[in-house]
Design a protein around this nucleic acid. Structure first.
Lengths: 232, 232
DNA sequence: ATTATATCGTTATAAAAATAACGATACAAA
DNA sequence: TTTGTATCGTTATTTTTATAACGATATAAT
């Protein structure tokens, strides 16, 4: 008389199929790479399954949060067992768009720019920095971590010709807006902004500001005012 | 019969004086450095006052948020005028503990470590990286951005002798925990963790994890699934 | 076969953060 | 002097995020 299986399943499948990925909370998206990192280690170690509980304990999170986060990638686990590591990795990568490599250019071959160029590991994040640009004539022409530094004047042509969609901005703050304008002209769709400058860009361009000072502020504040909070 | 001025003022002053800095929301603390950065520019340009409205518009925030954020530093503005730039800078710096320089050591003289060592600007964040350490004998002894790279074995002695309270961790992920243990033994109180490894440390040590992948995940996700959100 | 248990997925509640609303104040202009 | 307005600080509401609660399920143990 209750017909439990039927009524529940039909509702769930419809919901999941129709709205594809329900609104993905920002904090959730931020946690996904951390899961991914651990999952790759587990995969390399030969683990076939992993439980949300394990993922949670490593990252000092509540298991519920992990399960909810994973749910938005569309993955489905089995009770008492957990999730298939392979499937989980694939689901997260796909959700973040990291299953296909995105070509990016980097502007500003200074300290930080050089470090980012040298970072082996972006390939794990679906990112491929294919070229570097700088305004300084002394830097132009030199080779940095396998890429020849090109002059800024070449940026627009290069980016258009190679269908570049992502730009990494590592110039000094006072020329950041200028460089961003150049990227916009070049048809770039997203800017990863490592400068302290808040960029003004057309509405169809996505920017992500990366500010070291932010994290340092949290650290300093906790250090000075006794740490009461627990989480990250 | 209402006695509005009296009742309100007495309540406010008591509240403010007693609990010093009411619980500082995490998101608020993160925004403070951005204000600070802009304030210093305004100061250099000779501006004496700034309104919360201006701060807000530059950073694409609501004025209310700015006023609330500033309020927790203890600063008080004047209606129609705004805040004194000098006072505001001092208040934020003091709140974050950036009014006195904190000495730090850096462990891991790789790409990122080198870039951080070369970053002129930490002095604006109350941070002074006074020494660099590395495990690799080929790096030990070399000079990097004005600091001689020392062997890991010297870390504990050096940190204790110089009363170092903060450690910057830029080693590969698989040796991060090991380095963190060393820092703990050396009496370090806070660890700025640039590795992808979640650290296990004694409860009295504060850690702040800096994960580039986090920001990239947000950027990628927005790029792939149409950007509906507006804010940073 | 029954019971126990670890885990899942969902729903309900609590906490934190963002947004909105509103009175108060200081200067400017009529 | 009066009125207007930009801004402040606080309180109220909404939204987002985290935590808690709970039934469901798959294996292991009795």
């Amino acid at each position: 008389m209750k017909g439990k299986i039927d009524s529940k399943n039909s509702k769930k499948s419809v919901t999941l199929e129709i709205e594809q990925s329900r609104r993905a909370g920002l904090s959730c998206v931020k946690r996904l790479p951390a899961y991914l990192q651990l999952l790759r280690i587990l995969q390399a170690e030969g683990n076939e399954y992993v439980s949300g509980t394990v993922l949670a304990s490593v990252h000092h999170l509540e298991p519920v949060i992990v399960r909810k986060d994973l749910a938005i990638t569309g993955i489905i686990g089995t009770p008492r067992i957990g999730f298939r590591v392979n499937e989980l990795i694939a689901a997260i990568e796909r959700f973040l768009g990291w299953d296909i490599q995105t070509k990016a250019i980097l502007v500003g071959a200074g300290n930080l720019g050089t470090a980012l160029l040298g970072y082996r590991g972006f390939e794990n994040f679906g990112l491929q920095i294919v070229a570097a640009f700088d305004r300084d004539p002394r830097k132009v022409g030199r080779w940095l971590k396998g890429r020849r530094v090109q002059p800024l004047e070449q940026l627009v042509k290069f980016a258009r010709r190679n269908r570049i969609t992502l730009g990494v901005l590592t110039v000094p703050g006072d020329v950041a807006q200028e460089a961003a304008n150049l990227m916009a002209r070049a048809g770039i769709r997203g800017i990863w902004n490592f400068t302290p400058t808040k960029l003004d860009v057309p509405a169809d361009i996505v920017t992500q500001k990366e500010d070291l000072a932010e994290g340092l502020a949290v650290l300093s504040h906790r250090l000075h005012y006794l740490s009461r909070t627990k989480g990250l």
